[in-house]
Structure formats: C-alpha cells, structure tokens
Write a protein that binds this DNA or RNA. Structure first.
Lengths: 256, 256
DNA sequence: AGGCGCTTGTGAAGACGTGCACAAATCGCG
DNA sequence: CGCGATTTGTGCACGTCTTCACAAGCGCCT
C-alpha cells in the first residue's frame, strides 16, 4: 500500500479540502488509470509517459493527459509521470485513502460471489456486512462474515460507518432495500438488480446489469452479421421486421 | 414477409435490409427500454406513452422518443406506442430474435455465479458451455452443464454457434483466453477480468469491472463529504492533494 | 553553457449527446 | 363533421467529450 500524506492537520482553517470538479467521463476513467499504475509499479516502473500509461489503460494519450491535468497533476515534461505520486493523487481524489465499508444486501447467487470477490478487498473496500431478507439464510457464514437480516440494517449502520450499499437482490425487492439503505444514511448505491431505483436527490446510484451488457454485444453481433451476409439474400432473417401485428397500414412504402 | 419499413420523414434512399446505424448511446439504452416494456406488458399495458415508458426506464421522455425514432419505430400520435410491437422491434434490432449461445470461461467465484444467473436465460441468451483452465475443475457440473477444459474451445465452437464469449478468469489469464476466443471466431466478448484486452479490429469487447464501479461511487462519496465538511471553501481545491513529494512549491497556499 | 530531443499541458475545432419547444398527427366527443 | 386534447417526431441550440496539434518546459549530452 502507499503511504498517503493526509492533507488534514496541516492547514490551520479547513481540514478537508474541496475536490476539483472533475468531468464525469474523467472520473469514470481514473480507476482504470489507477489499476494500470498499480500494475506498472509492481513491475518496477518509477515513471511512465502519458503514452505508456494510456496504452496500459486502453485510452488515447491526449485524453489521459487532459484527464490528469484536471486534477492538477504534475507530470514532468520530457520525462513523464511519477508512478507513486500519481497513485497517491488518484487514490486521494477517489476517496480511497480510507478503506470504505460496504454493506452487501442479497446473498443469493450473485451476492454470494460478490461476497467472495477479492477484487473489492484489494482495491480499497471492505465488505462490512452481509444482509438478506430470507431468514433461512440469516446466520450463514460466507467468507468469514455472518449473514444478518436486512431489518438489522440500522444496527449495522450504527456499528460501522457504511459508505456504500450494494444491492444484489431480485428486482422486486430492490426498491425496498434501497429505501432502507437510504433511511440509514447510505448515499451511494451499486445496484445489480435489473430495475430502476428511485432515490432522493443527493443519493448516487450506479447500475450494473449483466444481461444488458450482453444485449449490447448482441446488437453489434447482429449488425456485423447483417453486413457480411449482405447482398441480395432477401430471405435473411434480417429483412423481416416483426411487423405481424395490427401495424398501421402506413407501410406501403416498400422499397425497391 | 419481407416488408421493410423506411424510417419516416424524408428521403427514399437505400432499401437495404441492414440495420440502421444507431448512436451508441441509444443502443446502450434500448435494453433498458426492453426490460421496462416487458414489465409493462406483464402488468397488462397494451400501449404506453413516451412519458410513461421513459419513467419506467429512468430516462427523460424526449430522449426516449429520439431513441425510438432512430429505429424508425411507429408510435401513434395522441396515443403512444404499442407495447407488443415495440418489444418485437427492439428485440429484433438487438438481435434477440434468436437465442444466442454464450461460452463462459472461468468458473471461479464470479463465473460460478454467472453460470447460475437466470437473468441470462430469461433475456435472450443460453449458456452453451462452461470452460476453465484448471483441470481440477473440469468435469464439475454447474447448473446442469459440465465444465470443460478451455483447450476444448475449438470443439465447443464446432458444436455450437457461439455468439458471445464471457471471460470471468483472473486478470493474468484473460488475454490468453481472449486470444483463444478470437481464434475460434468469437467476435463479441464480455470481460469481467480487471485488465485491458487487446483484440483485432472487428471484435467487440465490453468490460465490467465491479471494483471500478465502487471506486466511482467512492469519488462521489468523497466529494459529498468534502462539501458538507466545509460549506464555503472553494478556492484552493488542489492544494492539499497528496503532493508532499518533491512537488513544486505550489502547496504553500493554505488560504485564510 | 547551449542545443536537442522528448514529453507535458492546453487552446481550438469537431463530434457527439441532450433537452427544449413546437408543428404535425391522431383520437374521442359533442 | 369539426374541434380540442393529447402525444409523437424533430429542428435547433446548448453542453460535454474527444482529438489534434503545437508551444512551453525539462533533462541530457556534448
């Protein structure tokens, strides 16, 4: 781990500095840079050029430089960026100088896997509680943590400073869980349930829907297929839009 | 039935059966609309207004209408959209009229959960093969499927028309797996490993990194905390970045 | 010390995505 | 049959993100 110079305590007035207003697109890429930097540090690099880091992170170098410039980072012209320094800066900006406590609700199929995912532990987070609505599951021990009932959420929140809530329940339960999380003061939620959550302003929700990712890929797959199987193959499955319904008979404009 | 509709408005140009060129942002939202539409259909709605569907999908209605207009969809002014028709259209565009076969590589913690995730089956996909590099795992039966060795990929591809490959291996193994997938003709990959994959042109990769999602939330959490902690200190945002290193002497300015 | 090559940081231009606001189209009703 | 209520489709302006291209800065070598 990197020793982070904590900014507090040094100033006389404000202990905690405000963060620069980063573009969302930049924020979304910072974690990627961070991962690449950790890797570079491991294999012994002390400095890295924007080109090198961009390659490792899968973006183009101009974008990377602009991103880093937004957080006032110091590279050295002619040399590059100091890997260790950059790691510290990004970790600070992302709020990873403290290990954030995560409450995971729903220990079904997916939740179970998340509870055991070491990527969380190794990248700044600590699963502080496992919760489920199914009393049959309460008491079960997963990865050294006891599953507690979701109604104990208030107790859990009192014991630990929960920073982020993760919802891995079935869709019908997700909104209620979100409400409960918000009620105990959680203001950031990662939602794996395939549904839209409504939360009060000031609460951030990010959604991960595995089926959606596949469907997006499916579109591109479909598109690539329709291009290669292109000419004159009228019988291809693509020509026929599913229009068997009582479509408005406005479709007399049949091409060709 | 080869009726082909022209996207409204002007022009009677190319009568190509190829798919319309949708903006990526639109493509990414279509699955969300589809999910919302399925839900609406279940609870008995036959038509839905853009406002209603937008609400159910968590977007604003103008965006929704524009998205749907891109695929030449027919709503009825004064009424709304036919739910069933819209479902069919979106499923067609997304290439979900066939149930796509998915090969899942890596049946560790996460892969195990994915193998059992019913969201795939219920939303247009069929897990056709489970693969792993660990011979100790080969032969294991998960959710009715036998785990095979990743080197059998070619055989698997010959048996089934694999449409999409899912990588749920540890990061160090991911690139090799991707190469193998590409070698057997897979052109769409969903990558859960925290690393950048390099693939030939024409192959689509989408990445899902759970830790990154948390880190993005962490940023916002950090930011919210820094705002509430000091209501009126805008100026020196960057001053207290962990720049205690040989930073140019820019960090003297502790305001106030 | 001076010049040279390398790399950063950024202005400007272009591409892309979003949201407003309104005309056009449709339905239901009197 | 016509009118008003409703809702779609879209032109337009705006904001955000991306990319290019290059001046300024830095270290190294001679």
């Amino acid at each position: 781990m990197s020793q982070h110079r904590h900014p507090g305590a040094s100033g006389s007035a404000g202990a905690v500095p405000a963060l620069p207003d980063l573009p969302e697109a930049t924020v979304a890429r910072l974690p990627e840079y961070l991962r690449a930097l950790h890797h570079l540090a491991e294999i012994g690099h002390e400095t890295v050029s924007s080109e090198g880091l961009a390659g490792a992170a899968g973006v183009n170098s101009a974008k990377l430089r602009k991103d880093l410039s937004h957080l006032g980072s110091y590279g050295t012209r002619g040399v590059g960026y100091d890997v260790g320094l950059l790691v510290d800066q990004i970790e600070f900006v992302l709020g990873l100088t403290q290990r954030r406590a995560v409450a995971l609700v729903g220990v079904g199929n997916l939740g179970h896997a998340l509870a055991g995912y070491d990527g969380f532990a190794s990248r700044g987070f600590r699963i502080a509680a496992l919760l489920d609505a199914d009393r049959a599951r309460v008491g079960e021990i997963i990865n050294g943590l006891v599953v507690r009932h979701v109604d104990d959420l208030a107790d859990v929140a009192a014991e630990e400073q929960i920073s982020i809530g993760v919802i891995a329940t079935p869709a019908p339960a997700a909104q209620a869980v979100a409400d409960q999380l918000v009620a105990v003061g959680v203001t950031s939620i990662l939602n794996f349930a395939p549904c839209v959550l409504s939360v009060p302003e000031g609460v951030d929700v990010r959604k991960v829907d595995l089926a959606i990712e596949l469907q997006i890929l499916s579109f591109h797959e479909h598109r690539k297929a329709s291009l290669t199987a292109l000419p004159a193959t009228g019988g291809s499955a693509l020509t026929a839009l599913p229009g068997g319904l009582p479509a408005p008979d406005t479709q007399e404009a049949i091409g060709t």
